[in-house]
Structures are given as C-alpha cells and as structure tokens.
Computed example of a mutant assay.
Amino acid sequence: MSAVDPIANLRDLIRCPSVTPAEGGALSALEAMLSPLGFTVERMVATEPGMPDIENLYARLGTTGPHLMFAGHTDVVPVGDEASWSHPPFSAEIEGGEMFGRGAVDMKGGIACFAAAVARHIEEHGAPQGSISFLITGDEEGPAVNGTEKLLKWAADKGERWDACLVGEPTNPDVLGDMIKIGRRGSVSGKVTVHGVQGHAAYPHLADNAVRGLLPLAHALMHPRFDEGTPEFPASNLEVTTVDIGNPATNVVPAKASFAFNIRFNDTWTAETVQAEILRRLDAAAGDQTLRPGRDKVRYEIVWAERPSHVFLTRNNALISSLSGAVEAVTGRVPALSTTGGTSDARFIKDYCPVVEFGLVGQTMHMVDERVAIADLETLTQIYGTFLSRWFGDAAVS
C-alpha cells in the first residue's frame, strides 16, 4: 500500500520547493499519498485583498465519529544562503543516517510520518472506527492570514466537526519523546512612539528630548515582572525588541522616539487584560518626572499589532493520555507536558476541538542544513500508529 514508508513520503515532500506562499507541488504530493488510502481530498484556495492567494488541503477518511484531525503545514521558510548547505535544500539527500532538506523537521517530516502511520493502520487493522482528517495549510510560515484559520472555518461551514486534533510540529527539544505541547502562551505586540520638541543639543531648555520620555516608558513595561507564573505556564515576559530614534545628527535633540515590544503571557491574563495592564504602566510612567524635571507628562501613542494570539491550555485527558502513553510505549520516555515556545496554528484549532502538538526534534528547524535522523522518522511513525490505536480504542469505549 502506498505511503507506508515515511522516508519515501518525506523525500517526495522535501523535493517540492514550497516556500511560502508557493504550493510548490507539496499538496499534490500529499494528495497522491492520501487518495489511494481512501481519503476524499479537497483543495481550498483562500484569498485576502493585498495578500497572496494560498492553496490549502483538507482530506477526510470516514464519515462517522469519533473524528480525529491531524493538522500541519507544507510551506517552509526560505533556504537562506543555498551555497552554505551541505546538500541542495530541496534534494532530500541522505548522508550519515540523516535526510537533509528544507522542511525536514518543520514540518514535512511530521506529515510524512502521520501519513505512513495511517497507511500502516489501514493495512494492519482496516479503516478506523470513525474518521481521520488532514488539515494542511500553505501559510503557517507566512502571515497566517489565508491558512489554517480560514481553512477551519471553510471546513466547519461545510459541516465538519472534530473531537480532537494532533498538530505535528517539531516539539521535542533534544530527543524524540521529550515533550508534548498541551498549550501555548498568548502573544501581544505593539509600538510606542514618544513625541517631544526638536532643538539644539546645546540649548536643551528650548527642546524636549523624546528619548528622555521613552526610557521610563520602556523600563516600566519590563519591570516589575507581570506575574510569577502558574502551575502550567512560566512567568509572562515582555521584551523591547527594537528602538528607533531616526536621528543622524549628534547635536540635534530628537522630537520623536519609538520602541516595539512583544509580551508572551500565561493564563493569568487574557489579551485584553494584558493590554490594559500595559496601558496602565505606560500612563503611570508618562507622569514620572525623574528623567524630565519640570516637564509636562510624556506625550506618547501606542499602536497594537493586529491579531493577538490568545493563551490556551488543553485539559482533554483522553487525548493527552493516549499520546503520552504512545510515546512511552515506543520510546520508554515519559514526555513532559509543556506550554513553552512560540505560537503555532494550534491557537486557531483550540476554538474547534481539544488540541495537542507532537512531532520531531526541532534543533535544526529554519537553519541551514535542516535535517532529520532517519531513525526518528521510523520512531515517530510508530508513535503516531500507537496513538491512533489508543485514541480510537479509548474513544470507542468512552
């Protein structure tokens, strides 16, 4: 039966140059794996004014519940300096027990392994007592506007409903079996601009240095800490990510200064409450006269980045225990249940069903010479296969 070999699956996917927003043949390669297994495959193109069109894929096997979704993306980041690669980035060459190629771990490898696991499950046990779907986007590494979020709504509008979802992102920091992601921190970004009065550096009383106003505002956002963390999440953390004065002259007091920031926040906050706390801190700091003796309150404006990411935590024991048990059964390791790291498309899926993430080791993702151990492809396929048996078995008796 086709698709049973994760190495061949991944080779076919890597050889498709699907750098966002290009489909590059990757969805066609996946469709060729799934159709012979009995999946009904649909290709949905999402559009947005001013953005590139994105082709996405939705495939389903079965018509009844329970319904398990596997989600991920076939788009990849640019290769960077191609001359620095040991092997051409879309060649899928194997050397030293590793397959090289852009997307090997992030995340064509996860897709290749899950397709192989499903194929083996069908070969050994027949079709599952329920349904399996693949929800695969081509816009995860890009702006994520025409990808998973729109694909989910499109499928839900057609009547699709899911009981659980596994996202195949590379969650393991060091060794396969280290970590399952059961939630993600929220993320809010913004830009603060402080307005002053331009003038000569030798006559500061005639000017109002915007930098003197910027410093206490930036400091107030980074100190004190927003919280001390929760049992499931680390402490929320805000970082100033860039400062821009735009003043090439050394004898001119700048009239404008700005800084950008990002906060990753835990379940102590919502996007709305953390924004309110940021505004409270800025307003309090704006009236601080320590760096601006005799001056009026700092004049500032803030522009929030669009689409904050909301914090979430999955508490579905059947999903978590089925996956954790599968990892332990295959590797002997008890995976940590973590909420660390950045955001992923799981932030959209959480609104439709419980979701967890588990995939390959992510040490080389986005790097030159991205690569995956051949042995890990087989191990992950076995984990996914064991998970399928456990999850459908548990769902059948629940």
Rank of each mutant, 00 (worst) to 15 (best):
S2V: 00
P6I: 12
I7A: 05
L10R: 15
L13D: 04
R15P: 13
R15A: 07
P17E: 12
A26M: 08
L27F: 04
M33N: 02
L34V: 03
P36A: 00
E42Q: 12
M44C: 12
A46L: 05
L57E: 04
L61E: 12
G62M: 07
H67T: 13
L68M: 09
F70P: 15
A71I: 10
G72S: 11
H73M: 11
H73K: 06
T74N: 13
D81E: 11
A83H: 01
S84W: 01
P89S: 14
E95Y: 05
G101H: 04
G101R: 01
G103K: 08
A104N: 08
A112V: 03
A119S: 05
H125E: 12
G130R: 04
S133L: 10
K150C: 08
W154V: 07
W154Y: 15
G159M: 14
G159N: 15
W162R: 15
W162N: 14
L166N: 15
L166C: 14
D174Y: 08
I182A: 05
S187H: 01
T193M: 01
T193Q: 12
G196L: 00
Q198Y: 03
L206A: 08
P216D: 03
L217H: 02
L221S: 01
R225K: 13
P231L: 10
L238C: 13
E239G: 06
V240H: 11
V240T: 13
T241F: 01
I245T: 10
I245W: 06
V253F: 02
A257S: 13
F259H: 13
T273L: 01
Q275G: 10
Q275W: 03
I278F: 00
R281H: 02
R281T: 01
D283N: 11
D283E: 15
G287F: 00
D288T: 00
D288Y: 00
D288E: 02
K297W: 00
W304D: 07
S309T: 12
R315W: 02
N316A: 11
N317H: 12
L319D: 09
L323V: 02
S324T: 03
E328T: 09
A329F: 01
P335G: 10
S338M: 04
T340I: 04
G341P: 06
D345P: 00
D345S: 09
F348M: 07
C353D: 07
P354H: 06
V355W: 01
V368T: 14
D369C: 10
E378K: 13
E378L: 13
T381F: 06
I383L: 08
Y384L: 09
G385E: 12
S389E: 14
R390F: 08
G393W: 09
A396Y: 06
A396S: 15
